[in-house]
C-alpha cells in the first residue's frame, strides 16, 4: 500500500535543515509549559516532536487571521481583488489537524469556490506526524475517528524505536524524499513495528465519551431544549477563544481599512466568532442567538449536526483545543456526557 521509507532519528536534524532549504518550514515548537505553536524552524532541534495540540491549529496558514481580499483607490474608482499566499512546508501535523484541514478544504472548495483559499492551500506542503499515545485528557480523537491517519498529507511520519516510518502519499512528497536523500527503504521489521504500534494504539484509543460516533448527531439534534445549555449560559464569558482555536471554525467578518491618505485602502477577511453577541444580529436589531447558551449550542451544532447534513462529516476533530482554552472550563467531553446523562 503506497510507498514507505524510513529516516534514522539521528538524521532528523539534518532532514529539517535540508527541508527548510526547499521552502520555509513551520513546525510545532515549545512556547512555555504545555504550550506549543506552529512557527518557522530551520533545524530539527527546534521541533517539538512530542506536543499537545498547538494553541492555534495550522488553519492559520490556510485562512490567515487577517487576509487582504481587495485593494481600492477611491479617486481612480478602482477595486482590485487580491490573493495573499506564502509557500511553506508544514511539518508535524497531527491526524486531528489533518482532519481539520480536510474540513476547511470541503468548505472552501464547495461552490461558489474560494479561489484565495484554493490557491493558498496548493502552495502548502503537509507533513503529518502520528500520535503514538493520547496528548492529554481533553482529546476525543477516537470517537471522532481521527486518531489514525486518514490521508490529507504529502508525507506522514510515525516515530518508531530508532527511526521514523514515513508514508509517501503524493508526488510532491516523493520529490522531497528524492531530493533530501536521507531516507532508506522501509524493511520488513519496520512494517512490523508500525503494525505493532497501530495495534497498541487501537487498545489505547477508545471512545472518550458515553456515546458512539454515529450517535453524536442525534444527541445534539435532540439537545436544543436541554438544561445543559442553561448551565453553559451561566458560565460562558463569550470570549470567542473556543472558535479561534478550533481547526474547523472558519467564520469571518469582512472589514475595510482606509489608509491615512483617505483614498487608498483594502478590504480584509478577519476571523469572526459566533460567540460574539453581534454575530447574528440583523440591521433592525433582532438577534437570533441573544444569550450565550444559545451561541454555544450553535457552536456545537456547527460541529456535530449541520456539517453532517451538509457534508456528511463531523466538524469536530477531537483535538480538544476548545476545552483546553476555555476560561470558564466549558468542556466538550463533559458537555457531551451531560447531554447523554440527561437523555437517560
Amino acid at each position: 500500500m503506497g510507498k514507505y521509507v524510513t529516516l534514522k532519528k539521528s538524521d532528523f536534524n539534518e532532514f529539517i535543515e535540508k527541508l527548510s532549504k526547499i521552502k520555509p518550514v513551520v513546525a510545532p515548537v515549545a512556547k512555555g509549559k504545555k504550550s506549543f505553536a506552529f512557527a518557522e524552524v530551520t533545524t530539527g532541534e527546534e521541533v517539538a516532536l512530542q506536543y499537545i495540540p498547538t494553541i492555534l491549529p495550522p488553519k492559520k496558514y490556510f485562512m490567515p487571521q487577517k487576509e487582504k481580499i481587495l485593494e481600492f483607490d477611491k479617486k481612480k474608482q478602482d477595486w482590485t481583488p487580491i490573493l495573499e499566499y506564502s509557500e511553506k512546508i508544514i511539518f508535524g501535523v497531527h491526524t486531528c489537524d489533518l482532519a481539520g484541514i480536510q474540513s476547511l478544504n470541503i468548505v472552501f472548495t464547495t461552490k461558489p469556490k474560494d479561489i484565495n483559499y484554493i490557491v493558498r492551500k496548493d502552495k502548502l506542503v503537509i507533513i503529518g506526524l502520528e500520535c503514538n499515545n493520547y496528548c492529554d485528557e481533553h482529546a476525543s480523537c477516537a470517537v471522532m475517528d481521527n486518531h489514525l491517519p486518514n490521508g490529507g498529507y504529502d508525507l506522514f511520519f510515525t516515530e518508531l524505536k530508532n527511526s521514523f516510518m514515513i508514508h509517501v502519499n503524493t508526488q510532491i512528497g516523493d520529490e522531497i524524499i528524492k531530493r533530501i536523500k536521507l531516507f532508506q527503504e522501509a524493511k520488513k521489521q519496520d512494517f512490523q513495528q508500525l503494525d505493532d504500534l497501530r495495534a497498541a494504539k487501537r487498545k489505547i484509543f477508545k471512545d472518550e465519551v458515553k456515546v458512539g460516533h454515529e450517535g453524536l448527531k442525534n444527541l445534539f439534534d435532540k439537545s436544543v431544549k436541554s438544561k445543559v445549555w442553561k448551565d453553559i449560559d451561566s458560565r460562558c464569558v463569550a470570549c470567542g477563544n473556543c472558535t479561534n482555536v478550533c481547526p474547523t471554525c472558519y467564520c469571518f467578518d469582512v472589514k475595510d481599512d482606509i489608509n491615512l491618505d483617505f483614498n487608498t485602502g483594502a478590504r480584509y477577511r478577519v476571523w469572526d466568532s459566533c460567540q460574539n453577541e453581534n454575530f447574528a444580529k440583523v440591521a433592525g436589531g433582532e438577534s437570533f442567538r441573544e444569550d450565550r447558551g444559545s451561541r454555544q449550542l450553535h457552536r456545537f451544532m456547527r460541529k456535530f449536526s449541520y456539517p453532517v447534513e451538509k457534508f456528511s462529516r463531523y466538524f469536530c476533530t477531537g483535538c480538544g483545543r476548545c476545552s483546553r482554552t476555555c476560561m470558564a472550563q466549558i468542556n466538550l467531553k463533559e458537555t457531551i456526557n451531560a447531554l447523554v446523562k440527561e437523555k437517560k
Partner: peptide, 11 residues
C-alpha cells in the same frame, strides 16, 4: 506573504 492581483474573485 506574497500578493498577486486576481482577474476573478468572489470578492
Amino acid at each position: 506573504m506574497k500578493q498577486v492581483s486576481l482577474k476573478e474573485s468572489e470578492y
